[in-house]
Design a protein around this nucleic acid. Sequence first.
DNA 1: CACCAACACCTATCTGACAAGTCAGATAGG
DNA 2: CCTATCTGACTTGTCAGATAGGTGTTGGTG
Lengths: 269, 269
Amino acid sequence: MKALQKRIGITQDALAQSLTERFIFGEEALDGLMPSTRILAEEYGVSRLFLREVLAGLQRQGLIETFPGKGVYVRKPSMLNAARNVHTTIRQSTATARDLIEARGNLEEQCAALAAERATTEDIAQMEFALKALDNANGLIPMAQADIAFHSLLAKSTHNPVLQIMFGSITTLAFDTMLRSLSDPEIYKEGAPLHYTILKAVKNRDGLAARKAMSKHIHLAEYSYKNDLDRELREIAERIVKDVLQSTSSIEEILSSALKEYSVDLGQS
Amino acid sequence: MKALQKRIGITQDALAQSLTERFIFGEEALDGLMPSTRILAEEYGVSRLFLREVLAGLQRQGLIETFPGKGVYVRKPSMLNAARNVHTTIRQSTATARDLIEARGNLEEQCAALAAERATTEDIAQMEFALKALDNANGLIPMAQADIAFHSLLAKSTHNPVLQIMFGSITTLAFDTMLRSLSDPEIYKEGAPLHYTILKAVKNRDGLAARKAMSKHIHLAEYSYKNDLDRELREIAERIVKDVLQSTSSIEEILSSALKEYSVDLGQS
DNA sequence: CACCAACACCTATCTGACAAGTCAGATAGG
DNA sequence: CCTATCTGACTTGTCAGATAGGTGTTGGTG
């Protein structure tokens, strides 16, 4: 590690930090367009490829976005994007569905309670829209999309960016398990009305009721999962991909298109 | 986007997925050493550069680790590493200290309660070690290191990987605020004994007591922060870096060395 | 047996080049 | 004068080949 630093004048990390300070936090690139890679590379005295790798890192963090033929644009931070790496790690870990439900329950209960205090009329309207879409949805995937949108909007309604990030980091996993839960009609029949209970409590500014309804809603999965409860999330996700998606498109694409459609703009609060 | 896919036979994402399935989830590379970049590039019919960028992506996700002169090694996933990108995004967002305390409080209360149920004797011994180190610590940084180690060990004691990841994603931010809190002797005098209260409750398997003590401990910061409470975390972090660190080394280095020292191996649970 | 030097690998990086997308401005045709 | 088209100068993405520097092994020498 140290040897690499000796060889060239600047590390990738150092360059990345310098660039973020200059273009993301700093006031340069006000229109959002950064100088071209050639210019930047020359300016810092590194090769274009080296700079490219640094930019790739920033892109993976969601700080910038590159367009072939156009240039590199500074991007408004997106909570969802930042959390993207996290769930791949969870999928690798030994985390089980039970672990996820436990963590998610606590988090979402807090979100429900805080949303009851803070949700704006616009927040509520968005959540109502998502629930109506869930009722009228045709097919498993549209249902799950509306479902995850509702929960994400609830997290957004807390107006706490940290909570939004935390929920964002498990959104994909929650989506996996929703796909599994919704495929069971009985579970759906029991769980769906609770959405309205939650929303009603939020409207009434009744944090405690919202929390209770959410708790009930999340923990329904504990009964429905049975044997899968202590199975690793990875296996569940794999099965879902095979059974439901049939490799038409990736889970992440479906998820992010849903969040776009329901204008869940996690971040930029 | 589509144009790029047309040009070459395989996307970066597709190759990344193929590689992970083969070497991370799959059984190849049992010793942890992957084939060299030359071989892999030839095998997939892509250039070394292209493969390199894919590997760089995997490395950023903490899936692999490259050693110059040795090769590319498959790496056991580290929860802390996976969450690294998240806090840079939080720092960019408009999140305030109040937001962090709110989210962290709820999360850590749950961790304390669950740790009381599940902590092993080894977990408890590690936490005791960290607390003793905190008492004997000399200087702000060693104190904060012991402090964050204790809280991380508590999260580890839940034996829930998802909770560990969630806590990992805000560890850096918590560390920032600890550095600020510990610099105030009065706050420290009030907050430090609560650590022992928490640990005692964990030992007694008293989840409720552990939760209460943790709640009190976290929310102490609300009094100490005063004007800073609604200031953005970014500013606080910047000030800390300037005042405390004086650019000797980065916050992340200090933090990760602490977690290593106290053998907080978030992940691989 | 101990040592060490040459060698064969590895990754990291640089150079120079070309393909392909994008956009503004010149230019030709109406 | 207006409009449609085309050219050229940008941009990123990718490539092959060469070099630098680290690491481990192997075989020869003392």
